[in-house]
Design a protein around this nucleic acid. Structure first.
Length: 193
DNA sequence: CGCGTTTGACCTGCGC
DNA sequence: GCGCAGGTCAAACGCG
């Protein structure tokens, strides 16, 4: 992937939900990186486990977010309706195999958490095999939103963070709304004249 | 006090 | 069936 020309964002991208555009990523200095060469990174990261859908890696493999990251995208449309919905435990403990779109990408950043405008709550952290760094699990804090993301730093290139999103936000980006609300009010005010 | 993080336990899926 | 690895829960804790 060449990553130089502007690449239309993927419709499945969590940064581009169908109904709204999020502002450009506000990453800490030096985070928006030169395009990564995935061939250097892919061998180490376990994309299959990261994306852990059963779809093959090659299914949807393409660039996204311009030069910000190299990425892997796939949507595992859970074809088989799961018969194992027997979540007799507290609530629905083990989620059925996700039928939500998953999207992974890499960023070069000193911070594990990139500010994508949404609010996330960490609900777990696990050390994973073949990786020095643990994988962190986050959920969107919006009460109606079930989007999750996983964040993991590569062990052979510690400047690279792999973020995997699962699902699409069903609510507006809060930071964007914060930014836009005053503007909208002003526009409404001006439009009266 | 509310919200977010930490962390150990628990659960499921999968390979052998 | 067993063990391992990954994913989630929830109590405890910290912070503003």
């Amino acid at each position: 992937m060449e990553g130089q020309e502007p690449i239309p964002p993927s419709p499945l991208s969590p940064f581009n939900p169908p109904y709204l555009l999020t502002p450009t990523l506000s990453l800490p200095s030096s985070s928006l990186n030169p395009p990564l060469d995935p061939s250097q990174v892919l061998p180490e990261i376990d994309w299959v486990s990261l994306l852990s859908g059963h779809a093959g890696l090659g299914d949807n493999y393409g660039p996204m977010m311009g030069s910000a990251a190299s990425s892997v995208m796939l949507s595992d449309n859970g074809t088989e309706e799961d018969k194992r919905n027997n979540d007799k435990r507290k609530g629905s403990r083990m989620m059925k195999k996700a039928s939500r779109p998953r999207f992974a990408f890499q960023t070069r950043s000193a911070d594990d958490i990139l500010d994508d405008g949404y609010r996330w709550r960490k609900y777990g952290q696990k050390s994973v095999k073949n990786s020095v760094y643990p994988r962190s699990y986050y959920r969107c804090t919006h009460h109606t939103c079930i989007v999750k993301k996983q964040v993991q730093r590569l062990s052979n290139d510690t400047s690279i963070v792999v973020t995997t999103y699962e699902g699409i936000h069903n609510h507006p980006c809060e930071k964007l709304m914060e930014t836009l609300t005053p503007l909208l009010k002003q526009m409404q005010f001006l439009s009266r004249f």
